[in-house]
Computed example of a mutant assay.
Amino acid sequence: MLQDRFGRAVEYVRLSVTDRCDLRCSYCIPKGFKDFAEPEDWLTFAEIERVIGAFVRLGARRVRLTGGEPLLRRGVVDLAARLAALPGLRDLSVSTNGTQLARLAGPLKAAGVGRVNVSLDSLRRECMAEVTGCDSLPQVLDGLKAAKAAGLTPIKLNMVLLPGVNDQDVESMVAFCIEHGFILRLIEAMPMGDSGRSVGYLDAQGVLARLRARFDLRPQTVSLGGGPARYWATADGRFTLGVISPISQHFC
């Protein structure tokens, strides 16, 4: 079994299958950036299967496909099927910006993917265009509809908190998640690189306090995944909120 120096079992692996993305989010990719890795340098599917197979034999039980945008990797559904078939793997998930989900949600579910995390920073079309660099909201909403219809569950929406950009949209995102049965996760922007430092910082604790008072959120002791989010839920269980706060509450 893989263990860290505190004796904790390591059972969660995140696998980046490409660094390429079809969006240019303001907090992620610098304007004009084109220095992506060349495909011939990527691990092949056979190599990925071999590496993840080794992790599973060492006790990993959960694998998440990430990027860049992982659904841009040609043949990613076939890769998912190969990984889902590994004996001992219990949970295969995907983090995505949602632009490709409308066509791939069903095939991914059939291949063995159980759940998805989708980046969605606002329900306002103009705000999403500002953040992502293109008119992406209709594609993402279509992708969420397809993911829900395919039975991918739970669906978590990742919302990066951006001061003066989408801080006024949090309550509408909560209402949207209650309506559709999604989990909302609020993420503090990491000041990494010029892009991360330029978007500013919004303390998630202030937003959390606002939401706890309005929706009577209660802390949850059960983790909903292998990541660093802390979770709260309404008393009736209709809504769950996760907070990833690397600045205000260091999780490392």
Rank of each mutant, 00 (worst) to 15 (best):
R57W: 03
R210Q: 12
A54R: 14
A102Y: 00
L79D: 01
G196E: 08
Q249Y: 06
M192N: 03
R185G: 01
G59Q: 11
G225A: 01
G98M: 09
S95E: 01
D142H: 00
D203Y: 13
V140T: 04
N97D: 05
P246S: 10
D35T: 00
D236P: 12
D203N: 15
H250L: 11
I155R: 02
P163T: 10
E130P: 00
G53L: 08
P191V: 10
N158W: 10
Q220G: 03
A54V: 06
S93Q: 06
E130R: 15
R74Q: 11
R230E: 13
I244L: 10
D194R: 15
V76D: 01
V76F: 04
R115M: 08
D236H: 12
K34V: 01
D22S: 06
T96V: 05
D167N: 14
A189K: 15
P30L: 04
T234G: 09
V174D: 10
P163I: 12
A110I: 04
P30F: 03
Q249D: 13
C134A: 14
G53H: 06
P246K: 10
M190L: 15
G237R: 11
R8Q: 14
A9C: 10
G237M: 09
L79P: 06
F239C: 11
S195I: 09
G7Q: 09
T234R: 15
T221I: 06
G200T: 06
G242L: 04
V243S: 05
R5S: 07
V76A: 05
G67H: 07
M128D: 04
Q100E: 13
V13P: 03
V51K: 14
A105Q: 02
G151W: 02
D236G: 13
L161N: 11
R20K: 14
I178Q: 15
G68Y: 02
L161H: 14
D78P: 01
L15K: 07
V131G: 00
R20C: 05
L137Q: 08
N166H: 01
A235C: 10
M173V: 05
G227V: 06
A54Q: 05
F45N: 03
S248I: 13
W232K: 12
C28L: 09
R230D: 12
G53A: 05
R24Y: 00
L79C: 05
D41R: 03
T132R: 04
R14E: 10
G67W: 07
R24N: 00
A189Q: 14
L86R: 08
A9N: 10
L79N: 07
V13C: 13
L217G: 08
R50W: 04
R57E: 11
L58D: 06
V243Y: 10
V118G: 01
L83T: 07
Q168D: 15
Q100K: 13
V131A: 02
Q205A: 13
I244S: 09
L144F: 03
G193M: 02
V56F: 09
R124T: 01
L184F: 06
F45T: 05
A147L: 00
F33Q: 00
G151K: 00
N117Q: 07
G227K: 06
V113C: 07
G133Q: 05
R74C: 05
A85R: 15
I247S: 11
F239Y: 14
L101I: 05
